[in-house]
C-alpha cells in the first residue's frame, strides 16, 4: 500500500446550512500544512440544504469541496457518516484528515480511526510538519501537560480544538471545485436509533462568539450567584459559562460548562468568578486574550493565568460590578 499524500482533508460540520467556525478555522490550518508539504485542501461537508456552503468553504481556503447533501445527514449521527466518509478518504487519499474536536467530532473521529486502521490524535492545539511528518501537539493530564505525537501510518487523523486556529479572511475571488457526492449509505447498517432529542435554546449571545465570557464556579456559593453574572453579561453583551463543579451541583444549566469535557471559549475577556482554575477548566478558556479572576483564596491557581486578579468575596464584588457598569453605561 502506498502512503497517502494528497494534501489535507477537512471534515466541516454544517449548522443551518452554513459551516461552523471550527470548520473554517481548520481550513486555515489545512492551508498552512499544505503550504509546507504540498497537496490540495479538500473540504467535506455532510448536511442538507447546502446551496452556498461550497462557495463559503472555497473562500476560506478549500481547493476542492465535496458536498454530501442528504436529509439523513441533517443531524449528526456517527454511524450514518462513517461509510461515506471512509469511502471519500480512500478516494482522496489525503496525508492528513482534520476533524473538529466538537461534540460530534469526538464521537466520530475514534470510530473513523479504527475503520481506517490508524491512530488518532484528539484535541490538537497545533500541527506542524517537520521532516515531512505531521507533529501534533495536544493537551493531556487534564490540561497540565502537552504531548507531541507522530504517527507511523497514513492518513494522519487528528481532531482540532475550537479557537486554537484563526480562520482566514474570506476571499471571494479564490477558485475551487465543488462536487456533489452520492451517498453509499445502507440505512439498515445503522444500529443505534435516536428516539428523542430535547434541545434547550440558549438565550442571549452564543458563548463561543461572545467578546466577554463570565465563568462562575463554586465560589459563587449557589445558583443565585449566576443571576448576577447573567445581569452583567446582559449589560456587556457577553455570555455566561461555568466550571464543571458548578454544573455538577445544578447551579446552572449543563450547557454552561467550560472545560475539557465542556465548551471551549477564547473571548477578548474572560472573567473567572469563584473558579479555582483546575487544569480541566483552563483547557476550555486558556486561550482567552485577557483573564480577570475574582477569588477569595489568594493562592488560587487561577491567578497564575490571570492578567488581573481580585482577592475577595465574589458575592459582594459582582453585584457591585454590575452596579458600576450600569453607571458607566448611563
Amino acid at each position: 500500500m502506498t502512503d497517502n499524500n494528497n494534501g489535507v482533508l477537512v471534515v466541516v460540520e454544517v449548522s443551518e446550512s452554513q459551516p461552523i467556525d471550527l470548520g473554517l478555522e481548520m481550513l486555515a490550518l489545512a492551508r498552512y500544512l499544505t503550504d509546507s508539504m504540498g497537496g490540495i485542501v479538500t473540504a467535506v461537508a455532510f448536511g442538507t440544504g447546502m446551496e452556498t456552503t461550497g462557495e463559503t468553504l472555497i473562500a476560506h481556503g478549500a481547493d476542492q469541496v465535496l458536498i454530501n447533501d442528504n436529509s439523513i445527514f441533517a443531524n449528526f449521527h456517527a454511524e450514518a457518516w462513517l461509510p461515506d466518509l471512509s469511502k471519500i478518504i480512500a478516494e482522496v487519499a489525503p496525508a492528513i484528515v482534520l476533524i473538529g474536536h466538537s461534540e460530534s467530532g469526538t464521537d466520530l473521529a475514534p470510530r473513523l480511526a479504527f475503520r481506517l486502521d490508524v491512530d488518532v490524535a484528539t484535541g490538537c492545539e497545533s500541527i506542524e510538519v517537520m521532516n515531512g511528518q505531521p507533529h501534533m501537539t495536544r493537551s493531556c493530564f487534564g490540561g497540565l501537560a502537552r504531548e507531541v505525537v507522530t504517527f507511523t501510518k497514513t492518513p494522519t487523523l487528528a481532531t482540532v480544538r475550537s479557537k486554537s486556529q484563526q480562520a482566514l479572511p474570506p476571499m471571494m475571488e479564490r477558485s475551487g471545485e465543488i462536487k456533489h457526492v452520492d451517498s453509499i449509505l445502507d440505512e439498515n447498517s445503522i444500529r443505534t436509533r435516536v428516539v428523542n432529542r430535547e434541545t434547550e435554546k440558549a438565550d442571549g449571545v452564543k458563548m463561543e462568539s461572545a467578546k466577554i465570557v463570565i465563568g462562575g464556579g463554586l465560589g459563587l456559593g449557589g445558583p443565585e450567584g449566576f443571576k448576577t453574572l447573567n445581569e452583567i453579561a446582559e449589560l456587556v453583551d457577553g455570555a455566561v459559562g461555568a466550571s464543571r463543579a458548578a454544573c455538577d451541583l445544578d447551579w446552572c444549566p449543563r450547557s454552561y460548562q467550560i472545560g475539557l469535557s465542556g465548551r471551549t471559549v477564547a473571548p477578548e475577556l474572560y472573567i473567572a468568578v469563584g473558579i479555582s482554575g483546575a487544569s480541566h477548566h483552563m483547557a476550555g478558556c486558556g486561550n482567552s486574550k485577557t483573564i480577570v479572576s475574582v477569588n477569595s483564596d489568594p493562592n488560587a491557581e487561577i491567578f497564575k493565568s490571570s492578567r488581573f486578579g481580585i482577592v475577595g468575596n465574589s458575592q459582594e464584588i459582582m453585584p457591585a460590578l454590575a452596579e458600576e457598569i450600569r453607571k458607566l453605561k448611563a
Binding site: 505525537v149 497564575k304 468575596n313 452596579e323
Partner: peptide, 28 residues
C-alpha cells in the same frame, strides 16, 4: 501506530496584577 515525540509542562509567563480596594464598590 504512534510515537511520543515530546511530553512537557507548558510555561505560563503571565504576571497577575492584583486590584484592591477598601470596599467591594471600590474594587468593582
Amino acid at each position: 501506530r504512534y510515537k511520543l515525540e515530546r511530553l512537557y509542562i507548558p510555561v505560563n509567563d503571565i504576571e497577575c496584577e492584583f486590584i484592591g480596594g477598601d470596599t467591594p464598590a471600590d474594587i468593582a
